[in-house]
Simulated assay, not measured.
Amino acid sequence: MLFGHGDRVISRILIVEDEPLVAFDNEHLLTHAGYQVVDTVDSYAHAELVIKSAEIDLVLADIRLNGKRSGVDVAQLARDRGIAVLFVTANCPADARHLAVGCLIKPYAQKELLAAIEAIDAIMAGSTPGRLPQALMLF
């Protein structure tokens, strides 16, 4: 890890993902890496409830979700509440770049997800991130 657990800006993460296997893998990986996964949800409606009721440092948002609303809608809600967003999707939405810190393109390796979060943590801490994963685009 780039930072010790106590030095992180990001500690509480909301996973918004409609693919159960990806959601489970991300939750397990992040928990094992010392992050607190606040919740793992698959729809805007559930994400809205969590965002409005929990302390969250970062939202990992897929674009396609269950229901009528998308990860872009989740990103707008999170941004309105001052919560950083990282899109994790196969197709990064060019028209929503202003809503997120960046986009990690699927499929990505677990180490790329951790490196992306560490890079965003560095940016939020006012530092320059180290080497960025190839699958990560910062906005």
Rank of each mutant, 00 (worst) to 15 (best):
residue 5 H to Q: 08
residue 97 R to E: 13
residue 90 A to D: 09
residue 51 I to N: 09
residue 34 G to F: 14
residue 57 D to S: 08
residue 20 P to N: 12
residue 57 D to P: 00
residue 11 S to W: 07
residue 124 M to Q: 01
residue 58 L to K: 08
residue 137 M to Y: 10
residue 68 K to S: 13
residue 14 L to Y: 04
residue 128 T to G: 08
residue 91 N to K: 05
residue 12 R to S: 10
residue 64 R to G: 01
residue 55 E to F: 06
residue 59 V to K: 02
residue 87 F to C: 02
residue 2 L to N: 13
residue 64 R to M: 05
residue 51 I to C: 06
residue 91 N to R: 04
residue 111 K to L: 13
residue 81 R to S: 04
residue 95 D to T: 15
residue 65 L to F: 04
residue 61 A to N: 05
residue 36 Q to G: 13
residue 92 C to Q: 09
residue 111 K to Y: 15
residue 44 Y to S: 07
residue 79 R to T: 04
residue 34 G to S: 14
residue 85 V to H: 05
residue 82 G to H: 06
residue 48 E to F: 12
residue 125 A to E: 01
residue 135 A to W: 13
residue 85 V to E: 00
residue 70 S to W: 09
residue 36 Q to E: 15
residue 113 L to I: 02
residue 63 I to V: 02
residue 120 I to D: 00
residue 109 A to L: 15
residue 87 F to N: 01
residue 60 L to T: 13
residue 116 A to K: 07
residue 70 S to C: 05
residue 31 T to M: 06
residue 133 P to R: 03
residue 46 H to C: 07
residue 25 D to P: 01
residue 91 N to Q: 11
residue 1 M to S: 15
residue 23 A to K: 04
residue 22 V to Y: 04
residue 12 R to Y: 10
residue 48 E to I: 04
residue 86 L to K: 06
residue 128 T to P: 03
residue 20 P to W: 10
residue 61 A to W: 05
residue 71 G to T: 07
residue 1 M to L: 10
residue 32 H to P: 00
residue 29 L to M: 12
residue 9 V to M: 12
residue 93 P to I: 03
residue 25 D to G: 14
residue 102 G to A: 07
residue 108 Y to D: 02
residue 128 T to N: 14
residue 126 G to K: 12
residue 82 G to E: 07
residue 76 Q to T: 09
residue 25 D to Q: 12
residue 101 V to G: 08
residue 110 Q to M: 08
residue 64 R to A: 11
residue 13 I to M: 10
residue 96 A to R: 01
residue 94 A to G: 03
residue 111 K to H: 15
residue 121 D to L: 08
residue 14 L to A: 02
residue 31 T to D: 05
residue 53 S to K: 13
residue 77 L to G: 08
residue 48 E to A: 14
residue 113 L to T: 02
residue 89 T to A: 01
residue 56 I to H: 10
residue 52 K to Q: 05
residue 105 I to E: 05
residue 79 R to I: 00
residue 37 V to H: 00
